[in-house]
């Protein structure tokens, strides 16, 4: 089972295998890059060797997130632990949760708890920078919880509104 690392929402399968002392082969699904090695200097920096070329790397590891800066480009990579990612999310439950497509601020809330809503109904207006976006219900249900107040800010993927199934 390969390891999985997510970059910009895309999963990359990868695996290291030992090469010569301290260096590795990097196996991606469709290519092998070798040798690769990393020599760490200090807490947040090091020198990466990729197929004979060296790059100065600055990094911070924050849980499963790896923030990396190489040659003017910063990327956030997420190690996806198979024990978590392969554990199936309950499909039904997840579709009852309306998540924020981007970080932003709640402008107005169009519904109140207990209110029945149908698929496509406007639940909330959010604002991100100069854009207002209407958050709509993905299915029929009853508003169960509203997790932010007007004016409050939230992060991407935050659960904004929870619905419950009618008649439950």
């Amino acid at each position: 089972m390969y390891h999985s690392v997510e970059v910009d929402g895309v999963d990359h399968q990868l695996w290291l295998s030992p090469c010569q002392s301290g260096s590795y082969h990097l196996h991606l699904r469709d290519q092998v890059i070798s040798p690769v090695a990393f020599a760490q200097y200090g807490e947040n920096s090091g020198v990466l060797t990729v197929a004979g070329e060296t790059e100065r790397v600055r990094f911070v590891i924050e849980g499963d997130l790896i923030h990396v800066h190489i040659r003017g480009i910063m990327r956030v990579l997420r190690y996806r632990d198979p024990l978590r990612t392969l554990a199936c999310v309950n499909q039904e439950e997840s579709s009852l949760m309306t998540r924020a497509p981007m970080p932003g601020v709640v402008v107005t809330i169009a519904v109140s708890p207990g209110q029945p809503v149908s698929a496509g109904a406007a639940l909330m207006m959010i604002e991100s920078m100069k854009l207002e976006t209407i958050i709509r219900s993905s299915q029929d249900g009853v508003v169960d919880g509203i997790h932010f107040k007007e004016g409050e800010s939230f992060e991407r993927d935050a659960v904004l509104i929870t619905l419950s199934k009618e008649g439950r």
Binding site: M1, P82, L83, L86, A87, C88
Partner: peptide, 14 residues
């Protein structure tokens, strides 16, 4: 209990 074969295999590997 594993939600899929792959999940079960991940547990076994762990």
């Amino acid at each position: 209990s594993a939600s899929s074969e792959m999940h079960a295999i991940a547990i076994a590997r762990d």
